[in-house]
Structures are given as C-alpha cells and as structure tokens.
C-alpha cells in the first residue's frame, strides 16, 4: 500500500516537474552558453543601433566573450562588486593600451617574454601550449606547457602582470576540450614545441580553427580519472580501462546536469549584464584591435629581407 502511494506520488511529482521545466524554459532568459538562440536575439539588441561602424554583422558580446573572457566577472554573487569590477576593467584597458595582449584560446601556442630579475639577460622567454585559462579581471591567469629536454614543464602567468614584456601567439587554434590537463598524462610528443617556432599568420577574417587532434595517453596510473570527464581529445582511453572502471563511470554519470537551468544560470553572467559590460569596453577594445591590425600591416611592410652582397 505504502509503495503504491509512493509510486503515484512520484509520478505526479515527475509530471509537475516536467511541466514546470517546460514553463521555465519558455520564461527564462537564455543562458550564456546557448549559441544558436542567442544569434536570433541579436537584432533586438539596443547596442546594435548605437555603435554604427561595426564591420561585421554580429553582436560584440558574442565575439568578445570568447576572445576576452576575463572581462566578465565571476558569477558567484558573493564576490560581485560593481565598483571594483568597473575599476578593474579600466585598469585592464589601460594595461592593454601599453602592451599588446592578443586574442588566444586554450590550445593555442604562445610565446611569453617576461623581465626576470633572476635570469642572466634579465629577460626570459617560454613557449608552450596554453592548457588552461582561469580567473577574471586583473587576476586572469593562463598556464603554458612544454616538454624541454624530455622534461615536462608548466609555467603559470598572470595576464596583466606588469613584468610581462610580450605575449606572442605562435599558432592560433582551439582544441576539442576546454582544459588540456590530460596532456600531462599523454605521450610527450603531443606537448613538445620548439622555442624558435615561427608565428603562423592566419588570413584576415577566418574563424579560429579547431585542431581535431586526439592525443594518446600513457598507460596508467594517471593523475586524474580521465575516463569520467567525457574528453573529446583523447583517442585511446578505452584501452586502459577495466570492466570495473566502466561500471563506475556509468554509476558516476550526471546526464541531468545539462538540463539543470539553475546550475547554468549560476555559472554564467546573464545576457543583460554582459551587454552592459561590453557596451562599456567595446569602443576601447575595438580601437586596440584596429591599432593591432595597422601595426601588423606596417610590420610586414617595413621588414624587407636584408641581402648583403
């Protein structure tokens, strides 16, 4: 009897939940990560009319939130402070007018030159693949990884560190995953890059290419349980698993999380807030972009080959 009551109760509950979810989906504003629906809502943006000389069709927020993720504050309401965020943004723009901080993504190959009081020439250069970007505002960080002399080395840099002299993007591309920590357990050739690599220049207007390379992991033990993280960029993960691991992976799966609207909402900055932020920094960032384009053209023009004899 108790079971029957319980069962019908659960049924009613699930039905109402389903209904509520449908309703919520209609009412709520779209979260940040949803790509396609946001494109529809672009023409209704008030920003569109205000800034007239935009070269491309889309909303700046759509481009900029991927290219400059550190301008968006941390979504945790405990740490929000509109004044501090505003001051930080101003400082970031000031720093960006001093030094060229290029657009890069996790998976791009960067060369970073810092002034280092410990080094002999007082400067130090490191080249590596960006495996992580984190932090917001002035605390934004990125991590580079390389294998030098058969020894894996990782260096963490702050993006707005005043000791950074130059950040150079040697190869602009993305990978299949958001974080590339699995390179630590992969074969070393996947994270080996030579220090005298030449920068590869993409033709203007091309979208950032996604490198579909799938790395091979070394046999276990691993640093993390890669099999539970649904990684796209690893090819041979199944070879190293036992039956037990597969079973546990099934148990640990959280397929409902992609439908968890509240979780998504807590992780992201809503579109209204974002448009305010981008409206504040758009002009300056756009100007800096234009300057960089001009400079790159000038540089290609003014460096002819010096031929002696």
């Amino acid at each position: 009897m108790a079971l029957a009551v319980r069962k019908t109760g659960a049924d009613i509950f699930s039905v109402t939940r389903w209904f509520l979810r449908r309703e919520c989906r209609l009412m709520s504003t779209l979260p940040e990560k949803a790509e396609a629906p946001e494109a529809e809502s672009v023409p209704s943006e008030p920003q569109q009319q205000r800034v007239g000389r935009r070269p491309r069709m889309s909303n700046p927020a759509v481009e900029f939130r991927h290219a400059y993720p550190e301008f968006l504050p941390d979504p945790n309401p405990k740490w929000r402070n509109s004044l501090r965020e505003k001051l930080e943004r101003a400082d970031m723009l000031k720093r960006r007018s001093q030094i060229d901080v290029p657009e890069f993504y996790v998976g791009s190959i960067l060369g970073v030159t810092i002034s280092d009081p410990h080094a002999q020439g007082k400067t130090n250069r490191f080249v590596g693949i960006c495996i992580e970007r984190k932090g917001c505002g002035l605390r934004a960080e990125f991590t580079l990884r390389n294998v030098v002399d058969h020894q894996g080395v990782e260096i963490r840099y702050e993006l707005y560190d005043p000791t950074i002299q130059k950040i150079q993007v040697l190869r602009l591309e993305k990978r299949l995953d958001e974080k590339l920590f699995y390179l630590r357990d992969a074969l070393p050739e996947y994270s080996t890059f030579s220090f005298d690599m030449d920068p590869e220049i993409l033709p203007e207007g091309t979208p950032v290419p996604i490198n579909p390379v799938q790395v091979k992991l070394k046999p276990r033990p691993w640093l993390e349980r890669w099999e539970r993280q649904e990684l796209q960029g690893v090819s041979n993960i199944e070879e190293h698993l036992k039956e037990k691991d597969r079973k546990r992976r099934e148990l640990r799966k959280t397929p409902w999380e992609e439908f968890d609207l509240m979780k998504q909402y807590r992780k992201t900055i809503p579109e209204e807030d974002q448009s305010e932020i981008w409206g504040e920094v758009y002009n300056k960032l756009h100007q800096l972009q234009m300057n960089r384009k001009k400079m790159s053209r000038k540089r290609t023009f003014t460096t002819p080959k010096t031929q002696l004899g």
Partner: peptide, 18 residues
C-alpha cells in the same frame, strides 16, 4: 631543483621531483 607541486606565478612546475 624542480617540483611537481603547484608553484607561484612565473615559477615553473615540473612533471617530476628533481
């Protein structure tokens, strides 16, 4: 001369304790 542990900013972190 090299640690696996998480290091400060700009200090390299190695894959083994050297």
């Amino acid at each position: 001369v090299g640690l696996k542990q998480t290091q400060n900013v700009k200090v390299p972190k190695f894959d083994s304790n050297n």
